[in-house]
Design a binder for these strands. Structure first.
Lengths: 201, 201, 201, 201
DNA sequence: CATGAATGAGAATTCATTCAT
DNA sequence: CATGAATGAATTCTCATTCAT
């Protein structure tokens, strides 16, 4: 039973679903895309067959994980729209986003769930939230005017990715690269950009 | 270079080796790490078994690809050390590096060949080359003084990674993000970095 | 016995396990160690993948077969310890042992499962049983005093092995060679042995 | 070039043939039947392709090894026919036979080359030799009258086989079991045999 | 004629997914 | 409805054998 519609899941089923998602995140983080359903089920303390009762396929499981992460980020963005300092709000958003990724790097899951409609939907929400943050930052003059919401959306994961090339990165090293990239977004000393901003994803 | 081994291979074998490496790059780029040896062989127009005559295992094949790319980059870095403008040289290096990645994103291959000794060796050469470029840029005051060769090494792939989150990125879009990141490396308007630079990889 | 593990298997699974073991014995007997899992599965009327659900590897399958045979023999030895005539009991044991082997010569499997702990355990039991039989035969003066339990353990398979060098041996021919060897174990006309008895295996 | 007919092989080819046979024996002894042609060739210091110039197939190589061993034994038997003490001669023959096996256990090779005509031929010679030895022993009353040449032929390898069930057998332990078996062949205290002697193999 | 590169038919093993219990 | 047994396609890798160099 996947959809949020209809019956709201029995209590234990809902709990299993959460156990499963958590186990899957850990397993994917440790083993990469090739983490097996069997291992995930074992980690969740659930039978293999039951996994398919919750998620019709491995792809759908992955999509659900990605959805969750994106939804959390969309929430964060929404909440920060009311914050006092628009520049600080945008930086905070990027910080939360990178921190989320850092906990389990699951960026590679995104490519798998590219086509999924629920993912697209949540991503649109997130995109809207980022749009609002960027608009306010523009108005406040905190970031260069030629930078768009899409740019921010794309740069969001960069700090964590950068750090991943290291075997044992310091746990907060990504903040160093977020700082560098955020400096690149500032209006001071900005060089004209050689390529136009891309359209929304 | 890679062929540090024994005899120089028979002409046809050498050709097959190149066909194989090329096919493998394409296949990995399209299918990710899980590209199969069978598909690679088919793409190269070569029998499955022959792949294993050239590369004892899938891992070794991957290591060879990674080695080739790193060696090319090390060459580029070496050549640019003599260039007139240190700042332009560093930017040029990052441009070439990103361009190489763009053709086939194979960053994920790196993690597999982490332990390989040949890879380590070539990476050290590349690292040395980047070090020289960064030193000269520091001397010329083109980049902020708190940025190290390791930082540049890590940031090298970021522009391409950023773009990969898009389904159909404009072919040169990565230049936009390289520009933003490079602006972040400039001394003008630089914010103090929250984390110390990491040690060499 | 072998099924010392957890729950007692579902009825159908248990049946498949037996089918599998039987098919494997036949296939190994016909094709030797290089019998393929695929052929074994086909013979058992079971899918290839299912073999690995029952036995994690070919080695484990072999160990299970060996274990079964050794356990049966250990049982036989135990039962015969109470028999009236110690000499007849020992001969009976060797007869049963050889007969078991004859059905499927699987001696070569033993070398593969040398390290397996379950095998070691059952073999120790068997060894103890043989020890008891030999002790009683010694006491009764039926076998020469310089022959040990290890000797009997080692000679156990000889009659069948001898016969195997023939293309189409008469089904009970092995009894001829068991008789000859058993005569060699008798005290009458025994020549001093040129080498000391080996330590327990 | 396989046959002993026609040209007698160029000197170096003959040498390669011997190197190859020796390497193959060692490799088979160490790795069993699954020793690979590649490893054998490497051990002999010869190219893989050349192996097939000497022996048309792996089976033929094996048959050649087996042939060599059988021929040596046939020679030994022939030579011992003239010896003074018929009983001692037979024992000596069995000793040499077992010793030969012990050096490299290659009994398993025999089953592979079962059908080979050259093997059959040499085996017949060996059989004849054993027949002569047995006849003389019968005449001298050294062995029981109900034992035939075929029995001896079959029992020949038993002592080594027996010892093989041990992980690290003492190098001459087989002599212990040869003594036991030979005692079983003696007329003193012989029990009637339960099965008739088999026909020639 | 020796060499070793190429071949392709398997081998063991893994895994998402289905379905009887 | 949960369970875990069964499935079979796919994967990496091996090897006897052939054949161009």
């Amino acid at each position: 039973m996947v959809s949020s519609s209809l019956r709201p899941l029995r209590a234990d089923a809902a709990r299993n679903r959460e156990l499963l998602l958590a186990a899957a995140e850990e397993e994917f983080a440790e083993r990469g895309l090739s983490a097996s359903i069997a291992d995930i089920a074992r980690r969740a303390g659930i039978a293999k067959g039951t996994v398919f009762r919750h998620f019709a396929s491995k792809e759908e499981l992955i999509a659900s994980i990605v959805c969750g992460h994106l939804a959390t980020l969309a929430d964060v963005a929404r909440r920060l729209t009311d914050a006092g300092d628009p520049g600080a709000a945008l930086l905070e958003f990027l910080t939360v986003a990178a921190d989320q990724r850092r906990q389990h790097d699951l960026t590679f899951l995104q490519s798998v769930s590219e086509g999924d409609s629920r993912v697209t939907e949540v991503r649109d929400e997130l995109y809207a939230g980022i749009g609002a943050l960027v608009d306010r930052a523009h108005a406040a003059g905190t970031i260069r005017s030629d930078v768009t919401a899409t740019d921010v959306f794309l740069l969001m994961c960069a700090p964590v990715h950068v750090v991943e090339n290291l075997a044992n990165p310091a746990p907060e090293l990504w903040k160093r690269y977020l700082a560098i990239i955020f400096d690149g977004l500032r209006p001071e000393g900005a060089t004209p950009l050689p390529q136009p901003a891309p359209a929304r994803p």
